[in-house]
């Protein structure tokens, strides 16, 4: 069997350094398999998050050869194994240990977004009627597995560290799913403009590119939200009418 070298970032608050591990690679292996093999063979304390190993839970996010990826869905055959494969933790979040980052900020952000608020039920038995075409676009957003790779790649967070002023692509998708939910009657446009920092996004579409669920984050979620905010707050005609009518 062939061997390959993996250059894995190790360490924590006291400093990070790349360490090379060489292990055997077999047919169909993904990056996470290699990490597990290394863990079992030579580095039992190598910290890594993972769960389903099938691209459904979004736990094993990392940067493989510099690209934000799910390790469980990145096949070794798609990588150049003649060179060491680098595996690094996500950069938009502080490292706890090795490949594990502190993503708790994301959970705090989500709590701030106004929750789902449905209209009164449509039927006497307390249920609603929605047609499939109306739920299609929301279902696209709800495919999100919260791997936070879109947050990781977004330069507003990654390079400019605007975590206090900008909620990031994941939570624009989340907000879009709520705003476009056929039953929802809550209003989040004011928050999007003010506290969520929607304006910081300059639609470079990096988030869309790295999304393992292929959600068209920028085109289907962020841009329509920007349009709604613009319609509400920056429409000259509307501004004039509201001035006249008070």
């Amino acid at each position: 069997m062939a061997k390959a070298t993996f250059r894995i970032t190790r360490g924590g608050k006291d400093g990070l350094k790349p360490v090379d591990y060489t292990t055997e690679v077999g047919e169909g292996m993904v990056v996470l398999d290699a990490v597990h093999q290394i863990q079992a063979e030579s580095a039992p304390d190598l910290a890594v998050r993972w769960n389903c190993k099938a691209g459904k839970c979004g736990s094993c996010s990392a940067e493989v050869n510099g690209m934000p990826k799910l390790m469980c869905m990145t096949r070794l055959t798609d990588l150049n194994l003649d060179e060491p494969v680098t595996i690094e933790p996500m950069r938009a979040f502080p490292v706890i240990r090795d490949l594990v980052t502190d993503v708790s900020w994301n959970f705090e952000v989500k709590k701030r977004i106004k929750k789902f608020k449905p209209r009164a039920p449509d039927a006497p038995d307390g249920t609603w009627r929605m047609s499939q075409v109306d739920v299609d676009r929301v279902q696209e957003f709800r495919k999100c597995i919260e791997c936070f790779l879109c947050q990781d790649v977004c330069h507003v967070l990654r390079d400019h560290h605007k975590h206090d002023e900008f909620i990031g692509p994941r939570f624009f998708v989340y907000t879009a799913a709520l705003e476009m939910h056929p039953l929802d009657v809550e209003d989040r446009l004011g928050d999007l403009r003010k506290t969520d920092g929607l304006g910081y996004c300059n639609i470079t579409k990096c988030c869309t590119k790295v999304c393992p669920e292929n959600i068209t984050i920028t085109d289907n979620a962020i841009i329509p939200l920007k349009e709604r905010v613009v319609d509400r707050f920056f429409d000259p005609l509307r501004a004039l009418i509201s001035k006249v009518t008070g």
Binding site: F116, T127, W128, M130, V135, Q139, D184
Partner: peptide, 19 residues
């Protein structure tokens, strides 16, 4: 199941708009 819908779940729909 209906309760989940009231909490925001978006199930696939029948032609007449039900779950």
């Amino acid at each position: 199941v209906n309760e989940l819908e009231a909490w925001g779940a978006v199930f696939d729909r029948t032609k007449d708009g039900r779950i």
